[in-house]
Amino acid sequence: MVTKKVVMDKTHFLIVRDVDYAFSDGKQILSHVTFSLPQGAFVALVGQSGVGKSTLLRIVSGLLRPFRGEVLLNGRSPHEADPSIGLVFQHDNLLPWRTAYGNVRLPLELRGENGLQAHERVQAMLKLVGLEGYADSYPAQLSGGMAQRVALARALVHQPSLLLLDEPFGALDALTRERMGRELLRIWQAHPVTVLMVTHSITEAVLLADEVLVMNGRPATITHRIPVPLTRPREENVEQTAVFQECVTAVRSAIQIS
């Protein structure tokens, strides 16, 4: 193991250094993946289907161990005891036997946090995502957009320092998707957290993120980092501005069509 200096660096809150990954069938997926995120950033990750975005997210969350290289979250490995990560998948992944309230409460329960304080936090999260009236509804009774909001509330309830989103709105219709994007920005502003979000939509990436990472190749690596010089909060008609269009074009041409 390489001896590492633990630096509490706000500009390198999440560090992914030289990460390689291969599945047990021997096929190498990631090669020399290196990037870092400053604390509080909102960064989007784009790339072709099957390039390895979800795999990278799983490595960052500590669900998979990299073959080589390292991941440091605030100077510590995500495998260490309390990584404080929130995770949202493409499908809401809510437990069907728990109500919206019960689902949001799960992370607190698993940490042994019970009692009034936990209850109030869950209520506050449901309110933040605009679902205070649906606490007792089961996932089957919620629409896709509502379920995804509950999943977002669940991912944030234990106040993680890193929020990982894997195509969180991929299963929603275009209109709901747009609304959820704006909603996510509102929640992020109310609830400062570093966000790494995988998305298939280039416009969504540019609309939401400070920076867009582009993955390419087989095995894949980060080939481009495209900054988004748009002011926050985003203006109402930001999609029509020239800067926005330039960013979209830059991201699109960075994704290689193989």
Binding site: S61, L63, A81, D82, L87, H91, L110
Partner: peptide, 22 residues
Amino acid sequence: PQEYYELFHSLRASQWQIFRKL
């Protein structure tokens, strides 16, 4: 579903918690 296990693992649930709550 495997994704439920991933959820519990990402929250660092113990084996016993996974058994009881999942």
